Simulated assay, not measured.
Amino acid sequence: MIEKVLVVVVVIGLSFDGACAQGSCRLNEYEMTCRGKNSLHELEKGKNYAEVDTLNVHQAGLDLSDDLFPNGINFSRLTLLNATNNEITRIGRRGFDKTRHVQFLYLSNNKIAHAQPDPFQSLEKLELLEMDDALDGNGEDKADMLRNFFKSKNNFIHLSKIELNKNRLDEIFPKTFCGVQGLKRLELSNNRLQSFNFARSCLGELKALMLAGNLIQKIPADIWDFLPSVSSLDVSNNPLNCDCETVRLVRDDDVVFINQAETKCASPPEVEGKSIFELRKDYCSTARNPTGKSSFFQFIVLFVIAVGILFAYKKYRERLSHMSSAPVGYTNLQHEQAVEPEFV
């Protein structure tokens, strides 16, 4: 009897594993969730899914350089596509041709290493693009992919938020986001970026920039020239060099710095580990600033030298005046003291 029960359990388990491996979809009014390989290709052809506005697809092994749905499947009202956790390695324009109304696209936790030119061209209504921990390849390859994403015939006038956190990005080409006209919030946290490498006149409408957890040491003094509209900035957990220029920059502007407690100095040594916002107000005075000390010392030396030169010049004038006095000679004697010639 026990043996029969075990056989039944094993058979049921194998059947369940097989079903999961093939994939299945579940529809809940306006939201569909598909899980497993080829799950989307098992949808009933000819059926109208026009009522669905949210589609979640996971562990399906998608290839987004090809059609996302088979022919005859209608998702005409789809506005949210969640394709996270799919081990996606390729994306292209064809993968999104049948999802033209998507406004919110989630592609996080994938392994995208190849991107065809202009993959998001058809997504003219896109408002949010989330690609956290989504890119694979070396630093240059990923920088090239990002440039291809947004070098587009689509002006992205509605795309207000882009998330590219945790992608191990070493660099970003300065004009990467120049084609995203609607961009208001850009997240690039927990990468390996070392500088603010953004072209001027490209991000004039950007309001929030998140750069926490990178390798940035210096905030450029002219940052507000190429990011004129930014009102929120996060540079926490970066190895900041807290020189006086940077200290004045973060204190004097009206920008809101996020995570101030974690925005700490890595140098100079006397303030290492301290929040740049907790430094004393006299930090950049001559008493604390090494540059100020040097300048003060130079002033004292120059002052002493000037006093010495003035003193020496005064002594020289006195000596010169004394030496130039004419001796009293015969012609200078008074008349009554002169010797009159005697006549006989």
Rank of each mutant, 00 (worst) to 15 (best):
F75N: 10
P174C: 08
I276L: 15
D243T: 03
K153Y: 00
L188T: 09
I91E: 04
L81Y: 02
L27E: 14
Q116E: 15
A287I: 06
K4D: 12
L62K: 02
G72C: 12
L169G: 07
P327H: 07
D67R: 09
F196H: 06
D17L: 12
F150K: 00
A19Y: 13
K314Y: 13
Q260L: 05
F149S: 03
G179M: 11
E42M: 10
F69N: 09
F156A: 01
I223H: 05
C284I: 10
Y49K: 07
V8Q: 10
Q121S: 10
P268V: 02
V271D: 11
K281Y: 08
R288T: 09
A221D: 12
R185M: 12
A221G: 15
R100G: 06
M210A: 04
K218Y: 09
R319C: 07
L55C: 06
N241A: 14
I172P: 03
T263K: 02
A115S: 12
I73Y: 09
Q217G: 15
F303E: 11
L169A: 09
S232Q: 15
I91N: 02
L206H: 05
V8Y: 12
N190Y: 13
R77A: 09
G213D: 10
A60M: 05
N109E: 04
L203A: 10
P290I: 12
N109Q: 06
I223W: 14
G137N: 04
G292Q: 08
N237V: 11
N86G: 04
P228Y: 03
K218S: 13
P174H: 06
L310T: 14
D222V: 06
S294Y: 10
R93G: 07
I258C: 05
Y106G: 02
R319I: 08
D63E: 10
A312L: 15
A338S: 13
I157A: 10
E171G: 05
E318S: 11
E205S: 14
Q217H: 13
K153N: 12
K151Q: 11
G13T: 12
T84R: 03
R317K: 14
S76W: 00
Y316R: 11
Q121A: 11
P220M: 14
E87S: 13
S152R: 06
F75V: 01
L227H: 03
T246P: 00
V304T: 04
P70E: 10
G23D: 05
